[in-house]
């Protein structure tokens, strides 16, 4: 049952990604991309990552679609001939080569969900790994039940600080880029 659900989700996500790539109309592309984000956020739920699922649904499917649609509204909706883009054999060959290399490494990776996976070992040579530490000690040390929040704020606070810096820089960049925009300013 779970395997069937997982496979269905994976097929849905990959096919919406392909549809996003091949649709010529940009608004149709954006609509399918929103469906893709929604599918991915369900996958995050199945992978027991509710925090990531919430962020993806709000940011990926919500804010991202709005940003893309606003951009199209401010610029042009190109309406060329044909509903689908024509395949570029050289790009396809280059990407196919990369995929061949990547796929050949997949059987060597640990199976998803297996207890043998290196990321799921609590101790290595008698010492706690980060995973073991976050699961065993984080609650006693911080009193936060959700260990994602504990790690985000308590142990990796500098990451979050860096993230805030990136968001601030991006806002400054957007304002500078649009500050000289004639179309944007006159409305």
């Amino acid at each position: 049952m779970t395997v069937a659900l997982e496979l269905a989700l994976v097929v849905f996500v990959v096919s919406t990604a392909v549809a996003t790539a091949v649709l010529r109309d940009i608004v149709a592309s954006i609509a399918v991309f929103a469906a893709f984000s929604l599918g991915i956020s369900v996958i995050w739920l199945v992978l027991q990552a509710p925090d990531v699922a919430l962020t993806e649904a709000a940011v990926g499917a919500g804010i991202m679609s709005v940003l893309l649609l606003v951009t199209v509204a401010k610029t042009a909706r190109a309406s060329d001939e044909g509903a689908l883009v024509s395949v570029n054999p050289r790009a396809l060959a280059a990407v196919g080569l990369l995929l061949l290399v990547l796929v050949s490494t997949v059987p060597a990776l640990p199976e998803v969900g297996s207890e043998e996976a290196p990321a799921l070992q609590k101790t290595v040579d008698g010492e706690l790994t980060p995973y073991g530490y976050y699961v065993e000690e984080a609650y006693n040390e911080t009193g936060v039940e959700n260990s994602v929040t504990a790690v985000l704020v308590y142990y990796r606070g500098f990451d979050t600080f860096g993230e805030a810096t990136v968001v601030f820089s991006a806002v400054v960049g957007v304002l500078v880029a649009l500050g000289g925009s004639r179309r944007w300013g006159e409305e």
Binding site: A49, D51, V52, T55, E56, V59, G60, I63, M64, L67, L68, A119, L120, P130, Y131, Y134, V135, S147, V148, A150, V151, L152, R156, D159, T160, G162, E163, V166, V167, S169, A170, V171, V174
Partner: peptide, 20 residues
């Protein structure tokens, strides 16, 4: 493992900033 979730939360927000 909560660590990948934390890293991806940060990466999603950075990705949106980049897109904007």
């Amino acid at each position: 493992n909560p660590l990948p979730h934390v890293l991806i939360l940060t990466a999603i927000v950075v990705g949106v900033s980049l897109t904007a």
